[in-house]
Simulated scan of single mutants.
Amino acid sequence: MSRMGALLLALLSGLIGAALLHIVIVLSVPSFTGQDAYTRAAAEGDFNQFSTLSGERDAAGLMSVDPFIRTAVCHFDLAERAVRLLAPSNHDFWSVSVFDRAANEVFSMNDRTSVGGMLDLVVASSEQVARIRKAANSELASSIIVDMKGGQGYVVLRAMVPQQSFEDEALDFLDSASCLPLSVN
């Protein structure tokens, strides 16, 4: 290999290495700063409680940015108990997404894909799912059960507000939603 070829190979190797290092640093910044999505959702309130986001950035850095959507978040820990998400079917359009601690979407659905337009979702670890199925609880017969790997996560619940007159209805829907621990025998 000539000196020019060796120089080009060294230069190319350096550029590829620098690009990879840059990507790793950019992707790891949220975990070092404590400003990842789970930490920001956890700063909104207590475990297992929906907190409605406003249109202005709050202390945690979260906000509801879409003028036609109202948003609420709830963070949870499956170490002790599964979590049951409930909300009535009294709103025209809603969607829910479940994320793990690393902000990977685990599950999502909306009122069109739910049972009767109602939010009835159980998020549980594999062991908890097995206990729920073994118990054959009639109360959970119409619940959608989500098996989540990892113990902590958060839920984002959204309600559509196509016109200002729907604002109160959307906020009532989000306020009526629950994110409660579920006792599983």
Score class of each variant (00 low, 15 high):
Phe76Ser: 01
Gln128Ile: 04
Lys149Met: 03
Arg133Thr: 08
Leu86Cys: 00
Leu119Asn: 00
Glu80Ile: 10
Leu119Met: 14
Ser143Lys: 03
Ser143Ala: 15
Ser114Lys: 01
Ile145Asp: 12
Thr113Asp: 12
Gly150Leu: 10
Asn104Lys: 08
Ser114Val: 01
Gly150Val: 11
Val122Trp: 09
Lys134Glu: 15
Met118Thr: 10
Val129Ile: 13
Val122Met: 09
Leu85Arg: 01
Ala130Val: 08
Asp147Ala: 14
Arg112Trp: 02
Gly117Ile: 06
Ser114Thr: 01
Asp120Asn: 14
Arg84Gly: 03
Asp147Arg: 11
Val129Met: 08
Asp147Gln: 12
Trp94Gln: 04
Ser126His: 05
Ala82Met: 06
His91Ala: 04
Gln128Phe: 04
Ile132Asp: 12
Leu140Pro: 07
His91Ile: 13
Asp77Tyr: 11
Gly116Gln: 08
Phe99Pro: 04
Ala136Lys: 14
Gly116Phe: 05
Phe99Glu: 05
Ala82Pro: 07
Leu119Gln: 01
His91Val: 09
Glu105Leu: 13
Arg131Ala: 14
Gly116Ala: 13
Thr113His: 06
Ala136Phe: 01
Ser126Gln: 07
Val83Cys: 04
Arg84Ser: 05
Asn104Ala: 11
Leu121Trp: 02
Arg101Gly: 08
Phe93Arg: 08
Arg84Glu: 14
Leu140Ala: 09
Asp77Ile: 11
Val146Leu: 13
Ser89Ile: 00
Met109Phe: 00
Glu139Thr: 06
Asp100Pro: 05
Ser114Met: 02
Ser126Cys: 00
Val123Ser: 10
Lys134Gln: 14
Ala141Glu: 14
Thr113Pro: 00
Phe99Gly: 06
Val122His: 11
Ala130Ile: 02
Arg101Trp: 13
Arg133Ala: 06
Lys134Asp: 14
Asp147Thr: 12
Leu86Val: 12
Val98Gln: 07
Met118Lys: 10
Ser97Thr: 13
Asn104Asp: 09
Ile132Pro: 10
Ser138Glu: 14
His91Asp: 01
Val98Pro: 09
Ser114Asp: 01
Ser143Gln: 03
Asn110Phe: 03
Ser108Thr: 11
Gly150His: 11
Phe93Pro: 01
Asp120Phe: 04
Asn104Phe: 10
Asn104Met: 07
Ala87Thr: 03
Leu78Gly: 06
Asp92Ser: 13
Ile132Ala: 11
Ser142Asn: 10
Arg101His: 15
Thr113Trp: 03
Lys149Ser: 13
Ala103Asp: 15
Val96Tyr: 06
Ser125Gly: 11
Met148Lys: 11
Met148Arg: 07
Ser125Trp: 03
Ser138Cys: 00
Ala102Ser: 15
Ala124Arg: 12
Asp111Phe: 00
Arg131Trp: 01
Leu86Ala: 04
Arg133Lys: 13
Ser108Ala: 14
Met109Lys: 02
Leu140Ile: 05
Leu78Gln: 04
Glu127Met: 02
Asn104Leu: 09
Glu127Ala: 14
Asp100Ser: 08
Asp77Gln: 08
Ser114Asn: 01
Ala103Gly: 02
Asn137Glu: 12
Ala136Val: 05
Asp77Lys: 09
Leu78Asn: 06
Ser108His: 15
Arg112Leu: 14
Arg81Asn: 15
Gly150Lys: 08
Ser89Glu: 11
Trp94Ile: 03
Lys134Leu: 10
Glu80His: 06
Met148Asp: 06
Arg133Asn: 13
Ser95Gly: 10
Ala79Thr: 15
Phe107Ser: 10
Gln128His: 08
Ile145Gln: 08
Phe99Leu: 10
Gln128Gly: 08
Val123His: 11
Arg81Val: 04
Glu139Leu: 09
